[in-house]
């Protein structure tokens, strides 16, 4: 049976292209069910953090700064925080939670004894991480709207963008889980990748205030492109090069998701 032999060869190749299948939604749904149980503390975190940022920094610093990027500072801040929160939410979930399910909890081992495969699990996890980003985005948008810093209904368009930002940062987090020997390992990623992006990618001040050389580098980072989409959508300004930003976020998602699937296949199917 040459057909079977060929199928076998494809089956074991960890580099084969992942498919998106229905099984991914079973994994996503599993996580939704768990979240439902912890909904109160989750929502507290989703609403509490941005409220503190916006009230504390937005009004506090805003009082001295006044306007930034032709908008009130609190609007500038809210439209940046919505992107950076999507980043941190997806990163936390993609590292600590995914690693917990993969290693100590052996949830993936149990799932892999069913017809599901690594790519189904990771597609479900990726979507779930982005879903959590979306929850956080909804919370921030609500708080920002209540504070009167959102300009019109067009701001709702930020939600699909937040979902994409979630995907974009979940994928590299999955890669970190794939290669991680333990929880401490994630500190490197936070200190070396997430926190620097939080500081330099335009959340708190415009990227254009940075030295030119640094700016060139910062334009390669996904959070810069995320903020470049969320800020005009929230503040009602005109989008600049939206396709480029969407493409960068999608590209990061695809490349890192693929890498995560290959690495976790190698880790679990050996």
């Amino acid at each position: 049976m040459p057909g079977a032999a060929q199928a076998a060869a494809i089956n074991w190749n960890p580099w084969r292209v992942p498919r998106l299948r229905r099984g991914a939604f079973a994994v996503w749904r599993r996580n939704v069910l768990v979240w439902r149980r912890l909904v109160i503390p989750s929502l507290l975190l989703n609403f509490g953090e941005p409220t503190l940022y916006l009230l504390g920094l937005g009004f506090g610093l805003g009082h001295f700064i006044g306007e930034m990027g032709s908008m009130p500072y609190i609007t500038f801040l809210a439209s940046g925080i919505i992107a950076s929160s999507a980043m941190t939410t997806a990163s936390f979930e993609g590292m600590y939670s995914v690693y917990t399910r993969m290693v100590p909890q052996k949830t993936y081992e149990a799932i892999l004894a069913t017809p599901l495969e690594v790519e189904d699990i990771l597609a479900g996890e990726l979507l779930w991480c982005a879903t959590k980003s979306l929850f956080s985005g909804c919370a921030i948008l609500t708080v920002a709207a209540l504070l009167g810093v959102v300009h019109g209904w067009q701001a709702l368009l930020v939600l699909p963008v937040v979902l994409l930002i979630g995907l974009c940062f979940a994928a590299p987090a999955l890669v970190m889980s794939a290669i991680s020997p333990g929880y401490e390992f994630f500190n490197y990623y936070f200190v070396l990748v997430i926190t620097p992006m939080f500081i330099v990618c335009g959340v708190f001040y415009p990227v254009s205030t940075l030295p030119y050389l640094v700016q060139d580098f910062v334009h390669l980072l996904p959070l810069t492109h995320a903020v470049a989409l969320t800020r005009p959508i929230i503040s009602g300004q005109e989008l600049q090069q939206p396709l480029l930003h969407l493409l960068v976020l999608t590209g990061y998602t695809g490349a890192f998701y693929y890498a995560a699937v290959v690495l976790i296949r190698k880790r679990l199917i050996n």
């Binding site: 032999a5 199928a7 768990v34 052996k106 149990a110 004894a113 017809p115 495969e117």
Partner: peptide, 27 residues
């Protein structure tokens, strides 16, 4: 069926009790 080419299809018809319990503690 050869296992390599039909693993998922075969697993659909098998029940597995692993060596160490991996029940879902969240449920």
């Amino acid at each position: 069926l050869p296992v390599a080419a039909h693993a998922a299809q075969i697993r659909r018809r098998i029940g597995v009790v692993p060596q160490s319990d991996n029940l879902d503690p969240d449920f």
